[in-house]
Amino acid sequence: MIPTAFDYQRATSLDDALAKLSASNGAGKLIAGGHSLVPLMKLRLSEPTMLIDIARIPDLAGIREQDGTLEIGAGTVHHDVATSPVLRQHCPVVADTAATIGDPQVRNRGTLGGSLAHADPAADYPAVMLALDAEIHLRSSTAARVVLARDFFQNVLTVDLAPDEIITAVRFAPVRAASYAKLYQRASRFAIVGVAAALDVSDGVIRSARIGLTGAVSHAVRLTTVEAALAGCEPTSRACAEAARLAGSDLEDINGDIHASETYRRAMIPVFTRRALDGALARLTVQS
C-alpha cells in the first residue's frame, strides 16, 4: 500500500520542531517512530500533507532518574523502555508493559510519546501511565505545561494535546509494587483488556492503590472503585481478589468487537485487575 504524497521536514531540535509545527498552521503532523502513523497512512486512513520528523531531536529520548523521580523522554523507543536497567530496578511495571507492545521490530521503532499522542483505545502504555499517576510534559513554541495522565486521555484517539504541542517526556514517582496484566488480541497484539496496578503499602497496609485500565472503553481510565476498596486493606491476595470483583462494574459503553463482545470484555476486567494486583503483591513480597 502506498501513502498519499506529503512534504517532509526534519527537526533538529525541540525548538526547531515547535517552530516548524507552529509555522505549518495545523497541517504539520509529527512523526517519531511512525509505527502508529505509517500503517494508517499506507491504508490512506490518514493523509497528512506535512510530516515533521522529531526522531532525531537530541535529549528527547532517554530514561533519567532525578530526585527520586523517573523521567522517560517521549522519543524513547519501547525496546529501550523494556530493557532499561533503571526501570527494571525501580519501576519494572513500565518495562513489562513496553515488552508487551507489538513485536520486537515495532518495539525497536515505536516511541512512548507516539503511543501516548495516538492514544489507541487498546494501547498498553496509557494504563500504566494512569497507574503511576504520571505527569505528561508538553511544550509548545510559547509555553510548557504538565498534564496528569488521568486528565490526558479524553476519548477515542483524543488527548489533551494542542495541535502546536509536543509531548516531551513523562515523569512519575517509581513504584516497585506494580504490575501489568493483559489479554492479547491474537492478531494485532493490542490489549482486549489491559490493567496496570500500583500499590503503595506501608506498615502492612495498602495506603493507596492506583489502577489503570485500557482496551475496555473509549480511552484508558482509572478504576477508582477498586482503588477505594483497596485503600486501608491488608496487602493480601484475598483482599485484592475481593476488590477486583468491583472492577469495571461502574463503566458504561464497554467496547465490543469481533474479538471480544462487550459482555466478555466486561467479565475480563476483574480477572485482569486481580492478576495485575497479584503481580503487584508479588513484587511487594520480593521487596520486603
Partner: peptide, 14 residues
C-alpha cells in the same frame, strides 16, 4: 536494530 522497512519512509532513515 531490526526494523520493518515497510513502515519507515526512506527519508526517516537518512
Amino acid at each position: 536494530r531490526s526494523a520493518k522497512s515497510c513502515t519507515i519512509f526512506a527519508v526517516q532513515a537518512d
